[in-house]
Design a protein around this nucleic acid. Sequence first.
DNA 1: AAGCAAAGTGACGAATCGTCATATTTTGAC
DNA 2: GTCAAAATATGACGATTCGTCACTTTGCTT
Lengths: 263, 263
Amino acid sequence: MNIKLHFGKGGGSEHCLLKKFKNKREQAFAEREQELLVLAEKIMAKEGFSGLTMDKLVVACDYSKGTVYNHFSSKEDLLCALCVKSMEMEIALFDKGLAFQGRSRERLLAIYYAYRLHALMHPTLFYCVLTAKTPAVKEKASEARLTQQAELELQLSHVCDQLFEQGIQDGDLKLPAGITYSHLSFAAWALAFGSNALLQGASEATLVSRINAQEALLFNVNLVLDGMHWTPLSQDWDYRACWQRIGKKIFSTELSTLEQASA
Amino acid sequence: MNIKLHFGKGGGSEHCLLKKFKNKREQAFAEREQELLVLAEKIMAKEGFSGLTMDKLVVACDYSKGTVYNHFSSKEDLLCALCVKSMEMEIALFDKGLAFQGRSRERLLAIYYAYRLHALMHPTLFYCVLTAKTPAVKEKASEARLTQQAELELQLSHVCDQLFEQGIQDGDLKLPAGITYSHLSFAAWALAFGSNALLQGASEATLVSRINAQEALLFNVNLVLDGMHWTPLSQDWDYRACWQRIGKKIFSTELSTLEQASA
DNA sequence: AAGCAAAGTGACGAATCGTCATATTTTGAC
DNA sequence: GTCAAAATATGACGATTCGTCACTTTGCTT
């Protein structure tokens, strides 16, 4: 039922992209897994989400069915692995966003920017995250993969926690009585998840059709952070300009590749 | 590719639960569809999300495969139909929530209450909504069903719009320049969707594990509505008490059935 | 009652999943 | 270098599941 783990059973470090491996074998295994994931993403991008089948992946790669199933215990497990990959890339972008120099609230905005950017650059992978939240997928994914996923989620929230902390230290944010970082993190995360999930599927006619996605996200974020009384409030500060600045200063390379792709 | 529509082609009214039908035939058809949906939900609740197959549904019901496929063009279409059903029930609960007497912001809270209540009472159906946002499902659902879904979403947002309007008329809420109802609706919706989606899958160990779900939702809502400067602000008003009051005054029957079920 | 359109039936073919007995490669000891 | 044991790879195969279609039945109209 569970996928064989070829790594040592020592928990919690398999998901880092660049890591020392016990030996060549494990390294090769990890590399092959990445290779398979890249291939799977390509198939999905080309043939649609339901166009991805295990058989197609097997044919497309240089390995056999058994080998592929050594990596992914089921199709759902493969989807979760893609979700994990997506989150790993998010973390990398988040870390980049942390480099933005500014007030605490501006720096959190940089994280949101990174999130949105990731969704735009890798829509397919982003959808995998949504899909991985689905019971049909969770039910059939391997235990190990789900654990990995949960760990990454924690890791993502820790990035935010840093900024909450800075906000408090700088005196820009106060933690209400009985409220912890977790509450704030959850609120920030829920809004980001909800906004992006709904925006992603809404390029056509719906409620959100006419709303510019970027604008909407920024608006929503301002709402929540204003609600936290995180100064400077949106009425006292030009966060739209800040948003632009984040793009220019931190993510210019990503933006240009994005423009190239859509051109 | 598309499911045959046995109703008149006049658009936009098929989704109302109680409606006049052109003739007995259509009525029977609609009733059977509901019957099938109830059955499908039961199978899903009992055997898990991936335990629902078309074959099982066919065996469980008194009709043949062909008949079932006359209703649902594919398994994904069936899932969407369940999603539609879920939204119809939500609307009914929303309408009930509208009956709450109070200030505009309190009344919007009643809508959130209804949303949360629905998620608790029908977790399976609620998951269908999440699943229906997934590309794998959207790709294979019938056009007609997706239209129906989009219409219902609009209808849901209109309920909220009423309350935004009341808020403005009462002077409790001001629409910033360049901001429309749609923006506010979207923010409210995104937060509700994100919070509930994340809370639903998080009864166990994760970031949200220790946070009481109800509390978290109320907290998040307060954050956003405070961000809108919707008076009275959460610091000036006891919305937790209001939340309790909503439960008692409006949804007491639902609450008792819920307690019965979990006892 | 006859005729006809609409709906129902279920056997069937195609596609997909995941397994397992066997073949191959790698490892490590001498 | 050699050889046995352990790890890994292979792909044919059985089991589901999906969705279709040629044919039958139902029920409405005249």
